[in-house]
């Protein structure tokens, strides 16, 4: 038998396959198509202290090998999530990762405090959303701001913090190091890549927000490269993502240094893709004689 267990920031996952924030709702949307008990973890959509309305439509645009989104973190608030969605997720034997959003340091502190006394396995601090004007990505592109917000949230959270990084930077390693210095227990990357699409007949941007984040297979080589660079520069476990659509993609991320991986846009192309990826990894391990998934972690 082979072991798929991994340890992500002190939390044991039964396997490395997770879902990416914002692409899997609060889990219940995919329950008819995915055995949620077989996921390593579910990362839920981003939540903030106050309800956020999100951006005007259109919010999505298909692009070659991927898609743009500018949802703008629409969510009904952490309180609503805790009351309405969390009890459902807790019925399943999987870990829950909550994606925390804010526009300012105070926002991030407030949303962290909303979860005081609430049973959450891991927090993913989202300092990388390209679709909110203030906070969001601005915090994730400046090492000093990244360190400060990490420190503030780590000091107040009861569960480990992994910080989700933006690929829209020149030196990803310097941001990861800043988060490590701020006390992060792990790094998650990549968020979407800032992009844009124009409707040449309407002579207008397709997205209501004009610009949006690119996800899907188109960004995978960027993501693999960044996971590799971060793995070489910090001593933290990595939740790798960006364009994973097949089990081969997932293995690539693990070899580049990811402890676990998250599947995002691919859920839209095939709602049961996470199960297919998991089965593919199991077959690969059997065929290659790999007894423990951790044996291939970071071998590059």
């Amino acid at each position: 038998m082979h072991s798929l267990k991994v340890n992500l920031a002190g939390v044991e996952l039964k396997n490395p396959i997770c879902t990416a924030s914002g692409t899997f709702g609060s889990g219940h949307e995919y329950a008819p198509f995915v055995n949620l008990n077989r996921l390593g973890a579910i990362t839920v959509k981003g939540v903030s202290h106050e309800p956020w309305e999100g951006n005007p439509p259109h919010r999505t645009a298909e692009t070659y090998g991927g898609m743009l989104n500018a949802v703008g973190l629409q969510n009904p608030s952490a309180k609503a999530f805790i009351e309405e969605d969390l009890p459902f997720l807790r019925k399943y034997d999987t870990k829950v990762i909550v994606n925390l959003c804010g526009r300012s340091l105070e926002d991030y502190i407030a949303v962290t405090e909303d979860f005081a006394g609430v049973d959450i396995d891991l927090f993913e601090l989202n300092i990388s959303c390209p679709n909110v004007k203030a906070g969001g990505m601005a915090m994730g592109t400046d090492p000093r701001a990244a360190e400060a917000v990490t420190k503030a949230v780590v000091a107040r959270a009861k569960s480990p913090i992994i910080v989700k990084l933006s690929p829209n930077v020149t030196d990803i390693a310097s941001i990861a190091k800043a988060c490590e210095a701020g006390g992060a227990a792990g790094i998650s990357l990549i968020n979407s890549v800032l992009g844009m699409k124009i409707d040449i007949y309407k002579k207008k941007p397709v997205l209501g927000n004009i610009v949006g984040g690119l996800s899907g297979p188109a960004i995978k080589p960027i993501a693999v490269r960044m996971v590799y660079q971060v793995a070489k520069s910090v001593n933290l476990p990595i939740l790798g993502m960006g364009g994973i659509a097949t089990w081969e993609d997932a293995i690539e991320f693990i070899m580049a240094g990811a402890t676990a991986v998250a599947v995002g846009m691919a859920n839209f192309t095939n709602p049961s893709i996470t199960m297919e990826i998991l089965e593919g990894i199991e077959k690969f391990m059997a065929k290659e004689g790999i007894t423990d998934i951790n044996q291939i972690k970071g071998i590059i």
């Binding site: 692409t23 899997f24 709702g25 949307e29 995919y30 999100g54 999505t60 949802v71 629409q74 846009m265």
Partner: peptide, 15 residues
């Protein structure tokens, strides 16, 4: 409206 998931998960298709 333009859709991605069709399942209420992505919040992409707002009216």
């Amino acid at each position: 409206e333009r859709m991605a998931c069709g399942l209420g998960a992505c919040k992409g298709c707002v009216v």
